Simulated scan of single mutants.
Amino acid sequence: MFGYVTPYKMELKIKDYEKIKGYYCGLCKVLKDNYGNIIRISLNYDVVFMAIFLDAFNKDEPQYTKNNCILHPIKKRIFVINNDALNYAASINIALTYYKILDDIKDENSLRGKFLSPILKRYLKKIPAEYQNIENMIADKLNELYAAESKGNSSNLDELSHPFGELTALLLTSYVGKKDNYEKIYNLGYNLGRWIYIIDAFDDLEKDIKENKFNAINSVMNGEKIEDRINFVLTSYGRECAETLDTLPLYKNQDILYNIFTFGLLEKMDRVFLKKKNDKEEKNEKSI
């Protein structure tokens, strides 16, 4: 999975950091209770973010409990419980993981994927009836994405990132429904999805080239000097998300979401760009 949508810890208040951990542990608990232990290994911050974001439209304060878990048997952890947004996010986690594994099998003939896919397919049947549309949404948009990538003749990143942007937008708006803020939430999700798709492609660029895999940036830019262009594109998408967030009527989690969109996305970009710079310098040193 991706895991690029994370908070910037240095700017978080302790109460907000503990709250994020409560959502994270709460999602892990929902996965365990509703689906089983195996799927818990796929939990990632992008799905946790969705739960935090969607729960911000609920006027009720989160309910908490303290308990131990298998990873922390001594010190009790805080869990958010009885939360509809977490239940919805768990269904997203199941479906995304299943289709990611199918993609690994297609691209890499993954033995791990072949082992896990029948197990996860059984989990899909456990998704509550009210969330069954999630699987179809994910399958349809990922098929659109793979079709766009397979053409190999796209001239811009907007076209290639469009299906994943739409998928992210639909996953968010499907939960909140067509209310007054539907278009704003769709716009935030759409730009965030494109941001995730492009930073993931940039992060994996050298690896994909080496392994002869499709990479959107390599396909469109074809070896050009790309850092400045990618920085501009990612910054534009991130700014659009932050500006849209400011217009939404959130009942809670405002500070966490502000942190993610104002600092977290930029920190993740800095880390990926610094990694690229260090890799390039190391490669140059070896060639001397």
Results as ranks from 00 to 15, higher is better:
Arg229Trp: 10
Leu245Val: 01
Glu227Ser: 15
Asp200Ser: 02
Leu188Ile: 08
Met221Glu: 09
Ser219Leu: 14
Lys210Leu: 05
Gly264Met: 02
Thr247Ala: 07
Asn231Glu: 14
Lys268Asn: 08
Gly189Trp: 05
Gln254Asp: 01
Asn191Pro: 06
Leu245His: 00
Leu205Tyr: 08
Leu257Cys: 00
Lys213Arg: 13
Ile217Tyr: 05
Leu188Gln: 04
Gly223Ser: 13
Phe261Ser: 00
Ile230Gln: 10
Ala242Arg: 13
Lys252Val: 00
Glu227Met: 12
Asn259Gly: 01
Met269Trp: 04
Phe263Asn: 08
Gly264Arg: 00
Arg194Ala: 08
Val233Arg: 10
Cys241Pro: 07
Tyr237Gln: 11
Ala216Asp: 06
Ile256Leu: 00
Tyr190Val: 03
Phe261Tyr: 06
Lys207Trp: 04
Met269His: 04
Ile260Arg: 04
Asp228Trp: 11
Leu245Lys: 01
Asp200Ile: 01
Trp195Gln: 03
Asp204Val: 08
Asn212Cys: 11
Arg271Pro: 01
Glu240Tyr: 11
Lys252Cys: 01
Lys210Trp: 01
Asn191Phe: 03
Ile209Glu: 11
Phe202Cys: 07
Tyr197Arg: 07
Thr244Phe: 06
Leu266Asp: 13
Leu188Cys: 09
Thr262Val: 11
Ile226Ser: 15
Thr247Cys: 06
Ile226His: 14
Arg239Pro: 01
Glu243His: 10
Lys225Tyr: 13
Leu188Glu: 04
Ile260His: 04
Glu224Asn: 14
Glu243Thr: 11
Gly238Ser: 15
Arg229Val: 14
Leu257Thr: 03
Arg229Asp: 14
Ala216Met: 12
Leu248Arg: 04
Leu248Ala: 03
Glu243Ile: 07
Asp204Ser: 10
Asn215Gln: 07
Asn218Lys: 09
Arg229His: 14
Asn231Ala: 14
Leu257Asn: 00
Asp200His: 01
Thr235Phe: 11
Leu188Gly: 04
Lys207Gly: 05
Leu250Asn: 03
Tyr237His: 11
Asp228Ser: 15
Thr244Ser: 09
Asp246Asn: 09
Lys268Val: 08
Glu206Trp: 08
Tyr258Pro: 00
Phe232Thr: 14
Cys241Asp: 12
Met221Leu: 15
Arg229Ala: 15
Ile230Tyr: 09
Leu266Trp: 09
Lys207Asn: 11
Trp195Thr: 03
Pro249Gly: 09
Ile209Val: 12
Lys210Val: 03
Lys268Ser: 08
Arg194Asn: 10
Leu257Val: 02
Lys207Tyr: 09
Glu211Ala: 11
Glu267Pro: 02
Arg271Trp: 05
Tyr258His: 08
Ser236Val: 07
Leu266Glu: 13
Phe202Arg: 10
Gly238Glu: 10
Ile217Thr: 08
Ile256Asn: 00
Arg239Thr: 14
Asp228Leu: 14
Lys252Ala: 01
Leu266Ser: 13
Glu227Gly: 11
Asn259Ser: 02
Gln254Met: 02
Arg271Cys: 04
Gly238Gln: 11
Thr262Trp: 08
Asn218Val: 05
Asp270Met: 06
Asn259Asp: 00
Tyr258Phe: 05
Val233Phe: 14
Ile226Gly: 10
Phe261Arg: 00
Asn259Lys: 01
Glu211Gly: 06
